[in-house]
């Protein structure tokens, strides 16, 4: 799969939530796009990621 432009090999299909937790993202401070479509937060635990998928994650810090 591609994660923010980097090639990452997935041993097996994985839930998006697991990949986000592994990378220690704060789930309330991010936006996730899967193959060009935004994934709502309510679906992070349902969506399954495969090796063909392209994921973009942006995370926000405070200040403005």
């Amino acid at each position: 799969m591609k994660w923010n432009g980097n090639e990452v090999i997935l041993e097996k299909e994985t839930f998006l939530l697991a990949l986000l937790e592994e990378r220690q993202y704060a789930l309330g401070k991010i936006a996730v796009e899967l193959n060009g479509e935004i994934v709502p937060k309510s679906r992070y635990a349902e969506v399954i990621i495969q090796n063909k998928d392209i994921i973009e994650v942006v995370s926000f810090v405070g200040g403005g």
Partner: peptide, 18 residues
């Protein structure tokens, strides 16, 4: 998006893009 709070930033981006 010109908020201060990161949760609000995420909320607005997710809402607009969805």
């Amino acid at each position: 998006e010109a908020f201060d709070n990161p949760e609000n930033k995420a909320m607005l981006i997710n809402t607009v893009l969805t």
